[in-house]
Design a protein around this nucleic acid. Structure first.
Length: 692
DNA sequence: TCCCCTCGAGTTCA
DNA sequence: CTCGAGGGGA
């Protein structure tokens, strides 16, 4: 800043005067920015003021004012977090753990793009910081809102908190698309984490387990001024929706981000091929400990954005990027007990109770043991010394038993043959891994789990009816079955009188329940918790039957008529014999039918939209590709077609809608002609599918 | 009949 | 997030 002496040369008196000026000035600028939405100065000027203020405060800690800008923020505290849908979903990433895995990833890319086996392509390697990813939306160059990743398609709106991050530009420098989503990572350095925890300890507050949690906890503060007081860093690294292309390669995109004013991880590097990737991975592993922040691996992205588009997604993971994780952290501890949990479907799941041990910054005291065989295979016994691992995922698992440290007198674990809750016989069908309680409707453990599922996200999604509440209400006899939830309104006073409850929370709960009386058919079916019927299958059924009454009638018919009607169920694509049987079993049980009657009287179940109402002309069509395609590989063509709602097979039949002929198409072209199936050239196909 | 992929059901800790 | 089973195509 010109015209001002360097901080080192300030006298205390001059410093005090300047801090007073800065406090007043920054307060005014904040008000203009946050309240009037009319910034008076550029962000660079604003940031320089804050930086100057911070520098002076650092040198004269005694002079920090009560109204110092570092102690408050102009933004009004947010009232809870609204949900915000991302314009484009935020990615998850596939993982690899070795050179061989990575080579396999590259081979898949080559196969998909139809490249030669020795074809080289460039990557960008980026250290994978253990923070929390967020999405920022800029309109006409201005930061308008930001959200956490959430489930990938919808996160929490933390705009006010993000405004408090100095490292995040409020305006993009230079030209930018009218609308653009920018993704990056909010993180805390190891040093700031330790300092924050020391501060927390001094203040008698709870400590954060690791920098990641500290960053998440700091960002997700309802009072944005707390966020402002925490030192959070931000690196931008990815793109979401954009109204205009901004680069041809990822490396260019990163440069663009830098030009706009974002911090981009300086360690990110363009790598010309697999050889350079290996070297980079080794380099990062070696530098990991010395870095200011925690990283758990390196993300490699294919540099060419046109290739990225072609590669697209397999499920939720992009085919054009991969996270190469460092080996998981491990720790040794003692297994104190094995407890058996009973799930919604009656599955008996063994869970290890561990002597709490710190694994990679998190205190682990439990780990799933999956099933009977897993325990037998590893010969896990109560009292054993075990190695616990927390891999890239968060979920700990037991890697092995240290047999040398096994105390005397242990015995192989005897898996119970009866349900620990209701005492019913627990059976394990031949060929299956899971042993299940046969108590069904009489088992209280299953009943609670079913109710929890009923209220959970994706099903009725009743706010305030979490696991604990449901379990307590069930235990105290407030609810026995799903219908009772919708009769709770009559017992509001009783709920308000419960420990930990009050009038306000009871009223809110009743309102949340009332808000869910109307429910789409698919969610309703999913909520029932029918075995083998998850979210996807429930949607499928809802679309097929359209209405609750139709579904119910058909299912009753199937139940009465047995195998014949069961085959009708089998005609729904995606419903095979096992799911059909699960459905018939559910309806065969009188108590389930009673629950349905009960709910039908309490709820308004919305009809599902008619099947196949999709917009693309190829949605629902059966397509066959033959011959060699010139503008894309076979796998790519298939993926694109499926993304547009078509089904792709390899053999031409009467049911085939289109046969797309590549060069040198042979027998399938002939067969298509014989059967009178419509054939398309590759160009015609691209036009029909809207790919050009 | 086999293989590949998707879906369901399970779980940890903050 | 992982594992196992189901579904569907080869």
């Amino acid at each position: 800043m010109s015209g001002r002496p360097p901080v080192e040369e300030l006298t205390p008196a001059a410093a005090a005067a300047e801090l007073a000026d800065l406090a007043a000035e920054i307060a005014r600028l904040d008000a203009a920015y946050y309240q009037d939405d009319a910034p008076e100065v550029t962000d660079a000027v604003y940031d320089a003021r804050r930086a100057r203020n911070n520098a002076i405060e650092a040198r004269f800690p005694d002079l920090v004012r009560a109204d110092s800008p570092t102690r408050r923020l102009g933004a009004a505290p947010a009232a809870g977090f609204a949900r915000r849908r991302h314009l484009q979903p935020m990615l998850s990433l596939g993982n690899v753990f070795s050179e061989a895995d990575f080579a396999e990833f590259c081979a898949r890319v080559r196969r998909f793009l139809g490249l030669a086996e020795d074809a080289a392509f460039a990557f960008v390697g980026e250290p994978k910081i253990d923070g929390l990813s967020i999405s920022l939306t800029y309109e006409h160059g201005s930061f308008v809102h930001g959200a956490t990743r959430g489930d990938g398609s919808e996160g929490e709106d933390v705009t006010a908190n993000l405004r408090a991050l100095a490292s995040l530009p409020k305006r993009l420098a230079g030209a930018a698309p009218a609308l653009i989503e920018i993704r990056g990572e909010v993180f805390m350095t190891k040093a700031d984490f330790l300092a924050l925890n020391a501060e927390q300890e001094r203040a008698g507050r709870k400590l954060f387990a690791n920098p990641r949690n500290a960053a998440a906890g700091s960002l997700r503060q309802l009072d944005a001024s707390i966020t402002a007081g925490r030192k959070l860093g931000f690196f931008a690294y990815a793109m979401g929706e954009t109204s205009a292309p901004v680069a041809a390669t990822h490396a260019e995109y990163l440069a663009r981000l830098g030009a706009w004013g974002f911090a981009v991880n300086p360690l990110s590097r363009r790598l010309k091929g697999e050889g350079e990737v290996l070297a980079f991975q080794a380099e990062m592993a070696a530098r990991r400990a010395a870095l200011a922040y925690d990283i758990d691996g390196v993300v490699y992205k294919i540099d060419d954005l046109a290739w990225q588009r072609r590669l697209g997604f397999a499920g939720r993971d992009p085919r054009w990027a991969i996270a190469w994780k460092f080996p998981a952290e491990r720790a040794e501890t003692r297994l104190e007990d094995i407890r058996i949990q009973v799930g919604r479907t009656g599955a008996l799941t063994p869970v290890a109770v561990l002597q709490p041990v710190n694994v990679g910054g998190v205190l682990v005291s439990r780990a799933s043991l999956h099933n009977e065989d897993e325990i037998a295979r590893k010969d896990i016994r109560i009292g054993d010394a075990v190695v616990v691992e927390r891999a890239g995922d968060v979920i700990p698992r037991i890697v092995a038993v240290i047999v040398a440290k096994r105390p005397p007198g242990t015995a192989p674990f005897a898996f119970p043959t009866h349900c620990p809750v209701c005492g019913s016989h627990a059976v394990r069908p031949a060929g299956e891994a899971v042993r299940r309680c046969t108590g069904g409707l009489i088992c209280p453990a299953q009943a609670v789990e079913r109710l929890i599922h009923f209220c959970a996200r994706g099903a009725f999604d009743i706010e305030g009816m979490g696991e604990k509440t449901v379990a307590e209400f069930y235990e105290d006899g407030l609810i026995h079955g799903p219908g009772d939830i919708f009769r709770l309104a009559a017992r509001e006073a009783e709920i308000a009188a419960r420990e930990g409850w009050g009038e306000v929370s009871a009223r809110k709960l009743i309102a949340a329940i009332a808000a869910r009386r109307r429910i789409p058919l698919a969610r309703f079916i999913f909520a029932l918790g029918i075995r083998r019927v998850g979210e996807t299958t429930a949607k499928l059924l809802a679309r097929h039957y359209g209405s609750f009454s139709h579904w119910r009638a058909e299912m009753n018919a199937a139940q009465i008529m047995g195998s014949e009607a069961r085959s009708t169920l089998g005609n729904i694509l995606g419903i095979g014999p096992a799911i059909a049987e699960a459905l018939v079993d559910f309806f065969a049980e009188g108590r389930n039918r009673a629950v349905l009657d009960d709910l039908a009287g309490l709820l308004e179940i919305e009809d599902a939209e008619a099947a196949g109402a999709a917009q693309s002309p190829i949605a629902g069509k059966l397509v066959v590709f033959t011959g060699s395609l010139t503008t894309m590989s076979r796998a790519e063509a298939k993926a694109r077609a499926e993304a547009l709602g078509a089904r792709v097979t390899d053999s031409v039949s009467r049911r085939t809608d289109y046969v797309v002929l590549g060069a040198e198409a042979g027998s399938k072209a002939r067969r298509a002609a014989e059967l009178g199936v419509t054939t398309l050239s590759e160009a015609e196909w691209r036009a029909l599918a809207g790919m050009d």
